[in-house]
Every structure is written in structure tokens, then in C-alpha cells.
Design a protein around this nucleic acid. Structure first.
Lengths: 244, 244
DNA sequence: CGAGCGCTTGACCGGCGTCAACACCCGTGG
DNA sequence: CCACGGGTGTTGACGCCGGTCAAGCGCTCG
């Protein structure tokens, strides 16, 4: 944990894991076309009577816990969030990773409880939308209603993707598919990996196996490390990846 | 395949895989309290202008294909349906099994396309609800709207459950958890398993491994076969199951 | 400079995949 | 009636992939 463990004795008493950045100006949101409020019109915005908070969390901060009571739903503006479940035998399983534009804790809309734990994998920036706002708008704004359906569908598809793509086949195949899945949006031949332990929890592999397979991919000339952090790699000779 | 391969030269020309049973009388549906239309009132029903078909499919019939264009969404009234995805390397992965009351193909509401293939694991009975009906009612009936949210949430939770519970740990643990998950609703100490190949596609195991683990559970006195079909078992000494 | 953490690598072993033989059920046809 | 064949489930022998345990390396931070 490289953040979040400093000395707090001198800081103002905000919530320990998050920092309030102000009330969001959703109309001018930089990523508005990706998110829930994409299609809202002036009339829709007029119906929002509870402020939408703009929050920042540090890496490793917990947004909410499994089975926790929900205050609201989050929109991820920047960074990465992992959804974690603890299994019957106490180990941690990462069921999905969310990126900018994704909704965190959408399940709270139906039950007011979260079904997973959400943890920041990087420093992140989120909007917290109160449940009351979404309940109201989803009935009174067909625009939001349609967007919400799309977000549900996307979440479900992502969940099935993680199961069908990433948790199937040999260790080599799993690591390779994760590397491809985590390509940078703006530089498709680059990819950003995670801590080996986290990758293990995503792929159902031990961290040593993940490490070995990454090393093997590098040795085979399919991956080229960009630095010594073990996180940034270039994807080489893309054609050969399909035959894994 | 024990059904669906007979001689059809003499039957009436219905769709080969399904048999139309008439138009549903949703108000008097036997499982109405479990399904999408649970809370609809007389006014809501009055807004349904397209008939809801009541259909039966034989075992192994395909309700729809992955990426297929969607006519409607199904409610499962009776039987079991598996959702299947084909992986990059051509193998089949079962991502979930749906039971009575579940919605089949809910993703079509957002995209008019199905994200998985749906196959009947038993003879089944379903209602087909046209997309237009749901699009209309989800806006004009808050009752349906709420129910729909619950169905989305349930689907997402099921997806995460399959990933976190069933695709984690040793072969023994996976088979055991599947057996527990597939307990009969009305007789909790009984459970109904599937073809070994299907179980393998659910748990990411080879059918031989599944077979061996079931045999081991029987040998250890945790499972008792009820017949020679290999499908029906009694769950014995439930306390001991938790330490697997 | 040393402590601690994350990543890598090696040696060893066990669990699961592979390939194969066999039992059993059932429908078909001689 | 039994013979036959295909489909499904079980069991065995064997080998390899991935888990386990341990050592060592490089980075960051105190």
C-alpha cells in the first residue's frame, strides 16, 4: 500500500478514505457521453434535487463492502476499480475490473445493498449519485431509463465475459487474454497489468504461476516490458497471439 | 439426445423446435408471483396489445443463438435452461443455468441482441414476451419497472456467483458446490446433477474429472445415488460438506 | 545502508488432463 | 427373442501443468 497510510493528524477531518471535491456540474462533465447522464435534457437535470458529490479516493481505498447498505451508486470518472467477493473458504476472488464510464454498485438500485466489495486499484475519481435521484429519474426520464438498461446489460455482459474468456483454459491462455483485455484504450499495442496477486485472484491462478507465464510470454517475444515495474508491456507480433 | 430427433413427416408444420400452446393468460399464471408481471394491475395489463405466446420446447432445443437478433424475452415457467458461450478456441462454456421464474435473454431489452446461446436442458415451458411490450410497460408501469430492476440485479448476482463460487478451488470443491447449488427447491436434501460433459463446461473441468469427483463423494458417504441414471443423489451428512 | 515488499526463479510433488478400456442403458433390427 | 451399436458414465495408467515451498533479486522508503 503506497498511499493511504500517511499521518493524518494534521489534515481536516474528512472521511478517511475519500476527499470531497465539490458538487458535480453534470452538464459539463468531461466524460458525460459515456455515463448514465449522457442523454439528459435540461428538464431532467431540473429534477435532481439532491447534490451529486464529486469524490476522490486513494489507491486501495474501499468504496463499499459486500452486503453493505447502499447510500448511492457511483460513476467511475478516472482510474480502475476491482469488484471483489470473498469465497466460502475465505479467499478473495476478483470478479471484474471497472474502468472510466462504468457504474459501480449498480445492483444497489434494486436492493439498496451491494453484492460485492469495491476497491480502488489506482487513485480514482468518482461521482456519487444518491439512490433517490436515480429512482426518480429512471421513472420520469425515458432518457435515463434507456441508459440504465444499457449499463445493466454492459455489467452482465462483462460478468459473462470474465467467466467465459478469462477463467477458461491453461494458465498461459488466461494470462494472455487478460493482457489483451487490459490494452490501453488510446494505445492498443500497449497493455497495463496488475499486481501478480490480483491477477491470480482474477484468473484463479497462484501469483507464482502468473509471474512465470508473463516471463514466458516475454521470453517468447510476445510481450516486451516497458519499464522495471512489471506493469507496462508492449504487445508484440499480434498475429501470433491468436494461436495461444 | 432422447427427444427432438423423431420423424416429423406426419406432424403439423409448427416451428420445428417449439410448440405453440396458445396465448398466455398472464393474470392467472401459476408462477406469477415469481415473474416479471408479478405486480401488474388491471390497468397495466390493459396496455399489453401484443399477445404473449405460451411455448414449449423439447430438451436440447435452442431458444436463441449468441449474437442473434432478438424477437423477445422469455420467462421460464418450467424446466432448466443453460446459457452457453463459445470461447475463442471453439469450446463451449456454460455461464449459468436458469430455473423457473428466471428471465431468459434479458440483455435483449438493451440491445435487441442476445449475448449468449440459450439451450433447454429439459423439456421446458416458457412465455415469450415481445420487446415492444416490455419497452412500453417499463416506462408506463412503475410496477414492472421495479420488477425489471430486480431481474437485472438477480441476473448479475447469479453471474458473479457462478464465477466466484463454482469456478474456484479444487475439482472436489467445485463439484461439491455445484451439487449444493442444484438442490431441489422442495426437497433440500436431494440434488439433481447434469450430464458430466455439461458439468465440466460449467466448472471448467473435464468430464472424467467430474465423474471421478462424484464417485469420490459417494465413496466418502457425502452423496448417495438415488437411481442408476447418475443424476439424482441424496445429500448425506450436511455438516461435513462445509469443510470441503 | 538495512528492512520490507513485490517480483522472479528453481526444485519438487500432487492434482487434473489425456488416452484408453469397459460397463450399462436403450433403441433398432435381425 | 437376442444381437448389435451408439451414447453416456466409470475407472485405470500415465504424464504434465500448475501449486507449494523456498531462495534470491531489485526497488522504495525509513
Amino acid at each position: 500500500m503506497q498511499h493511504g497510510s500517511g499521518k493524518f493528524s494534521f489534515v481536516i477531518p474528512i472521511h478517511i478514505e475519500s476527499a470531497w471535491q465539490g458538487t458535480s456540474d453534470c452538464r459539463n462533465c468531461g466524460i458525460r457521453d459515456m455515463v448514465l447522464f449522457a442523454d439528459l435534457n435540461e428538464q431532467d437535470f431540473g429534477q435532481i434535487h439532491t447534490p451529486i458529490d464529486d469524490l476522490k479516493y486513494l489507491q486501495d481505498a474501499v468504496l463499499f463492502y459486500e452486503a453493505g447498505h447502499a447510500q448511492g451508486v457511483f460513476t467511475l470518472r478516472k482510474g480502475l476499480v476491482k469488484l471483489v467477493r470473498s469465497t466460502a473458504d475465505g479467499r478473495e476472488r476478483i470478479v471484474r475490473v471497472l474502468r472510466a464510464g462504468d457504474v459501480i454498485g449498480i445492483e444497489a438500485l434494486a436492493t439498496s445493498r451491494y453484492d460485492t466489495e469495491a476497491v480502488a486499484m489506482t487513485d480514482i475519481s468518482v461521482c456519487r449519485i444518491p439512490l433517490s435521484v436515480l429512482h426518480h429519474l429512471s421513472v420520469h426520464s425515458p432518457r435515463l431509463h434507456t441508459r440504465l438498461m444499457q449499463k445493466w446489460q454492459q455489467a452482465l455482459k462483462d460478468a459473462d465475459d470474465w467467466l467465459a474468456e478469462l477463467n477458461f483454459g491453461t494458465a498461459r491462455q488466461r494470462v494472455a487474454r487478460l493482457a489483451l483485455k487490459m490494452r490501453d484504450a488510446d494505445a492498443p499495442h500497449m497493455t497495463t497489468l496488475f499486481a501478480r496477486q490480483d491477477m491470480g485472484a482474477m484468473l484463479d491462478l497462484k501469483l507464482e504461476t502468473v509471474s512465470r507465464e508473463i516471463s514466458a510470454l516475454v521470453r517468447d517475444g510476445l510481450l516486451k516490458p516497458q519499464d522495471k515495474s512489471g506493469r507496462h508491456y508492449e504487445i508484440v507480433d499480434e498475429k501470433r497471439w491468436f494461436s495461444l
